[in-house]
Design a protein around this nucleic acid. Structure first.
Lengths: 219, 219, 219, 219
DNA sequence: GATGAATGAGTATTCATTCAT
DNA sequence: AATGAATGAATACTCATTCAT
């Protein structure tokens, strides 16, 4: 009988107990999402996994997508924190191009390597709000800007359009890290060799003809 | 023979009419999948779209995933045909590296550009069997082998491990084409510029220091 | 997972079997509504009562309110038929005012006496669409028009505004019949006496001072 | 005494603060009932609206229906007070029949006009206990007795069974006032005209042939 | 006395699948 | 061969009520 039922705002956790409940639910949702995927994730399952009643679940989250959003939020915040941390080292532009681009590759690998199954579900299966999409693009834009700054100023760099080159580099690294770690988790040895070679590829691209290759690398 | 056809493997379409029915169902499934995604695709909807009864649907397909597998199958076959066709031109190894790698990039773009929405659903939402995964990897392996052959023999190429370099090239092209066309469909102009720049990146990588850049390209 | 699920139109019953199912469901809904009221009527209960699965219920009715609407529809149609039948006798305007108004009273009593508990639920508890409201008003309007015609032409009648008087008469009869039969079902003897007296009241009103009272009636 | 207060009848508010709390809850329940109806009224909402915790709510009321009963109780008491007040004027039997019956009509209109939405919910949606039904009937009986007394003694009255006539008058007035004010709230102008005409109807009925109609009224 | 977090039975609804016709 | 009516397990979500703090 849902005649004139209004959507009550969910409770804000004010006591310690309820904050723990909320955290337990989000944790459980992340685990269930990673293990079963978005479609097979049910609110009852999440609640059970969190050790709370289904009633408590709905006390704090309006619907299934609300928890999913919370998980996504947390994941995104972790990614932003990771890149903010790495940004210092990259932003200074110190070191050889190979060192800088190697750090870029490593940052993306580390980003994707944290719970790859969850990462996969969050990036491919869950519906993204416009706000989330914007947020992801903004994060990428910031990284591209840093790389573009390096390409514009670094003595080894030989690029005509630093913005475009930086975007291609970042997208390449992101797409390949995603594929190697998230999509299949495939043969890790091949992936490591490829990750190393990826740095060479980027160096060859942005330092065309100038950067002497260190001995022992593919030629 | 007519008595024992209950739970057994579905009827194989030997008659023309049956083949047409099967084809109509697979066509309908592809359209519904592309339009609504895997989760929202229902067998009843597919049957209706195909103009057959739900009973007939189950006469030809054991369950929902069976049609989805058929669609995936067909999509894969189309991809294999596309690459088999392009392989001739690439396999000969004629032309500059830029021409050859440009053809590689174009082949992957064409592959992804054919019904990107279906492509997206098939690669991200539908469950993949181990056999399908193997088949995709085998296709990639064949393409990598062709590229590796080129890199090993082409006078402009400067790579130490052609197999590794070829794999990196192919994976890069595949991952980026997928991202640009399938994942977002985003700004097509940026995508085109990036696609062109991608060829430059590959050329720079495999022909380090040797390949003169054509005028008018980023430097 | 109701991502992009569209509201499919319900099946139209084309086979005899399904027509029976629909009828069984509407019958069951009427019984359940009468017995338990709108709020306590559940789709599962209706389906069980009808002897069909809950799936079949939703095959033919989009939601709970859809069956309720069907019950209301049928009830309304029965009422319209009843009044259409009585309208002939009334419309002719033959007979004394007492006979005509007595027939009016009887028509409303008969209308309400058919399944009073269902009548109560349908008129007080279920949500009425604007269309239904209009339909009810239209039915009342037609009855009022007939009575107004009688009051304007009948030799015994003494009313200044036949439309107003007719509306008051009809509303009084409707409201009292409803109260006596539907609201409580109260003491039936008292109700019968009151119903008879109601006719006297109406006669006194529309024939002020002219209509000789038959012997044996309250004075 | 303090130990055994679990499932027992709820605390009786003896302290002023408790009385205020109870009153606040009943007030809130009346508002919520009027605004949302019985089915959509939730105890949590009532408690929130009253500014008390849900725990406190259940300290004073055993369950949802207990508050609803309290609201009904208070509504009934208000009605009893209203009619007790009007009874003086009516009881004296002073004035013309038209004045007396006009006062009766006005009393019922005033009764129903006080918070019609709440009135509607209380009379149509909430479950009535036998005790409540009895109480309503008793109130009606008292009013009928007063009217019967008037009809038996008033010089203008011409009724053979004053008890029966009085009951018909009271029920008519109650039923029509309810319909005009509570059920629809409909067009107020028509309602006012009808209310006036209703008095004429009653006068015509109880004073058949004797009561001269004032000028300007329907004839 | 008071709070509000937690509970879980209960309700509406969907959709893959079966089977009588 | 084909139809489509029927099935019911499964899922999202609400709200009256309890009880630890």
């Amino acid at each position: 009988m849902a005649a004139a039922r209004k959507k009550a705002p969910r409770r804000k956790p004010i006591q310690t107990r309820s904050q723990e409940t909320v955290r337990a639910i989000v944790d459980a949702a992340a685990r269930v999402l990673a293990r079963r995927g978005y479609a097979a994730t049910t609110t009852n399952h999440v609640a059970a996994r969190a050790g709370v009643s289904i009633g408590s679940f709905y006390e704090y989250f309006r619907d299934k997508d609300a928890v999913v959003r919370a998980v996504l939020e947390r994941h995104l915040a972790a990614g932003e924190a990771l890149f903010a941390e790495r940004a210092a080292a990259l932003g200074a532009g110190q070191g050889t191009l190979r060192e800088l681009l190697g750090a870029l590759v490593q940052a993306f690998i580390d980003f994707h390597a944290d719970d790859p199954r969850l990462h996969r579900v969050l990036s491919h299966e869950v519906p993204h709000s416009a706000a989330t999409v914007r947020r992801v693009l903004e994060l990428e834009r910031r990284i591209v800007a840093i790389i573009a700054g390096i390409l514009a100023a670094h003595p080894e760099a030989r690029v005509r359009d630093p913005r475009l080159a930086a975007q291609l580099c970042v997208e390449t690294v992101d797409a390949l890290a995603h594929r190697w770690i998230v999509d299949e988790g495939g043969e890790p040895i091949a992936a490591e060799a490829l990750a190393h070679e990826l740095t060479e590829l980027l160096v060859a691209y942005v330092a065309r003809g100038t950067s002497p290759r260190p001995r022992g690398t593919s030629a």
